[in-house]
Design a protein around this nucleic acid. Structure first.
Length: 435
RNA sequence: GACCCCUUCGUCUAGUGGCCUAGGACUCCAGGUUUUCAUCCUGGCAACACGGGUUCGAGUCCCGUAGGGGUCGCCA
């Protein structure tokens, strides 16, 4: 039988990172087995399940490149079928009506647990069992006539032909109920596998207050979908060898439920950041440039395309996340950049620096052509003839031109900035701090 | 509280009785390369929760303890 997995989120406007990891594992498993990955939108909560919320969900999946097979099933369209099944259960004596707990809310439909011990083999956690006396009957249709999660979920999984239910740890107790429901419904019981939870930096369950709990947070922080996918895939699973940065194909090929961890995993933003950097480096140049243009435009910077492309090339290897781009290239696009005050005091406001900058300026002015090779040679010659150290020349030059101490290699950067800007910036620096 | 689950470096993990004086990755530290920073290279710090068994031999199997987590809704 063809393997079928599904992702069954309830669209709330935010996609929790733990849910998304479950989606990734379902996708990976389905692809590994040559099966299908389905989407079911559990939108029975009409309050929260707005079109915008559904859009957010779809966008998140798209961003992570989780392609689905077939059309999404919207649970809200299945209410009649759910209720019908409840009637059948009722007529077979497998469920009964009662005003549960005498709450006065009216009669609801309650599923009768079979009264036998239950056991199943979890794809991740191994053999699990539960004694009959620890399982109680449960509500499947509310007194207001709407189906409860358990009923709807199981019925829809049957409808969609789901063979493997891969979901969060928090559902293990439900599994015994669900198995009983499948049996009462005369349906094949699917395989179940339960993923451990993801916890925050304090080792506690991720709550909304932690921040970084939703997929959108990671996107905003400048992470790449592919990097987050890879990171999340490795959070609780490993291929068994030392590979970490892997292509989709490699992950699909290596993925096995049996190799999934059964203990909770903590998100480490530093490792994610490192991995993201690896993915940034692998980006095709055009894609990287497009990303830069977008970031820069969003920051309100107007950039000449040719010049900007050269600038982006300069920072290409240093950018770890999309969010790094703007702070890293800012000074290329304005002559009114700020200075690192501490560096100014330490490297600029010293005896002789004014003279050094004056000479550097003069050298640059006299250069026939102003490019990487010529500036490189000129400054190295100057260092040699003047007897000054490299640092004593390069550091003030860099500060004068960019305002900060770190950045791309000096000479290629000078070439990109161009003689005019470089000279003007040296003048400005001298005017501000050395006169 | 009841039931269930989990426990290897700070973090993610490898490890399925001898190949483990426990390997890799991130982070951190030191050294090297470099005009700076980053990269890169080399090296280093750092873990089998604890206690009992079983066994010639246990991170690996069993029991217990401790700690952590999940579930106990007419939420999903």
């Amino acid at each position: 039988m063809k393997v079928r997995t599904r992702f069954a989120p309830s669209p709330t406007g935010n996609v929790h990172i733990g849910n998304m990891r479950a989606a990734i594992y379902n996708w990976l498993f389905a692809r590994h087995m040559g099966g299908e990955f389905l989407l079911r939108v559990e939108d029975t909560d009409r309050e929260r399940s707005t079109p915008e919320a559904i859009q957010t969900l779809l966008e998140a999946m798209d961003w992570l490149k989780l392609d689905i097979d077939g059309e999404p099933l919207y649970q809200s369209t299945r209410m009649e079928a759910h209720l019908e099944a409840a009637e059948t259960l009722l007529s077979k004596g497998l469920a009964y009506k009662e005003d549960k707990g005498g709450t006065g809310q009216g009669e609801c439909v309650i599923f009768r647990m079979p009264g036998t011990d239950s056991a199943y083999v979890d794809g991740i956690k191994g053999p699990l069992k539960k004694a009959a006396e620890n399982m109680q009957d449960f509500v499947i249709v509310r007194s207001n006539g709407t189906p409860v999660f358990h009923l709807a979920n199981v019925l829809d999984d049957i409808e969609q032909g789901v063979t493997h239910v891969i979901r969060g740890d928090d559902h293990v107790e439900n599994t015994f109920r669900h198995i009983a429901l499948y049996q009462a419904l005369d349906a094949d019981v699917p395989n179940f596998a339960h993923l451990p939870m993801i916890v925050n930096a304090q080792g506690k369950p991720y709550s909304k207050r932690d921040g970084d709990a939703f997929v959108g947070d990671f996107r905003e922080k400048g992470f790449l979908g592919d990097a987050l996918f890879n990171y999340l895939a490795l959070l609780g699973w490993s291929p068994g060898d030392d590979r970490e940065v892997m292509t989709r194909e490699e992950m699909i090929e290596a993925f096995e439920l049996a190799r999934c961890q059964s203990s909770a995993a903590q998100v480490d933003l530093r490792k994610l950041t490192w991995m993201n950097g690896e993915y940034m480096l692998k980006l095709p140049e055009a894609e990287f440039e497009a990303m830069c243009f977008e970031a820069v435009a969003k920051a309100g910077i107007e950039a000449d395309a040719d010049y900007a492309k050269q600038v982006f090339g300069l920072v290409r290897e240093r950018v770890k996340t999309v969010a790094d781009i703007v702070p890293m290239v800012g000074y290329f696009f304005t002559d009114e950049f700020d200075y690192d005050e501490k560096a100014v005091r330490k490297k600029l406001q010293k005896d002789g620096v004014a003279d050094v900058l004056a000479q550097v300026k003069a050298i640059f002015q006299e250069l026939e052509t102003f490019d990487e090779a010529s500036t490189d040679k000129a400054l190295h010659d100057f260092v040699e003839t003047s007897g000054l150290g490299f640092g004593a020349v390069m550091a003030p030059a860099r500060l004068a031109v960019t305002g900060i101490q770190s950045g791309p290699d000096l000479f290629p950067m000078l070439a990109v900035l161009g003689r005019e800007r470089v000279l003007a910036r040296i003048d400005r620096t001298v005017r501000l701090f050395l006169s």
